[in-house]
């Protein structure tokens, strides 16, 4: 059966198969995305605007803010987890994962 993905709660959660799995309020380090002038941007995810898949990876678009310098921007294609054997495995938010980083803008 196809995995159900949707944004819930006014953009506060990503639901995967009817379970809230990925939250805003987590801080994600962006090391290769040119989000701001910080060497690593520690980005608070403020709202998700859409969710989709890229291969086996679940990716989100949204709005975030660097909690060190305050730069705020939209992003697209942030990998937040994978679907493996029909079930979702969330990535831990605190780790640098350069291949799953987003691009700026929507």
């Amino acid at each position: 059966m196809a995995t159900q993905l949707r944004v819930l709660d006014d953009g506060a959660w990503v639901s995967v198969d009817n379970r809230r799995q990925v939250a805003t309020t987590d801080i994600w380090p962006f090391a290769v995305t040119d989000f701001c002038d910080c060497s690593i941007a520690f980005v608070l995810l403020e709202a998700f605007t859409s969710v989709g898949v890229d291969g086996r990876e679940v990716v989100v678009d949204g709005v975030g803010q660097c909690v060190d310098c305050g730069t705020k921007d939209t992003f697209s294609g942030l990998g937040v987890g994978r679907v493996l054997d029909g079930s979702f495995r969330a990535y831990p938010s605190g780790d640098v994962r350069s291949f799953s980083e987003p691009t700026l803008g929507e």
Binding site: R19, Q21, R82, L84, S87, F88, R89, A90, Y91
Partner: peptide, 10 residues
């Protein structure tokens, strides 16, 4: 059922 809340093994 299942353990899909577990973090992915990157």
């Amino acid at each position: 059922d299942g353990d899909d809340a577990a973090p992915a093994d990157d």
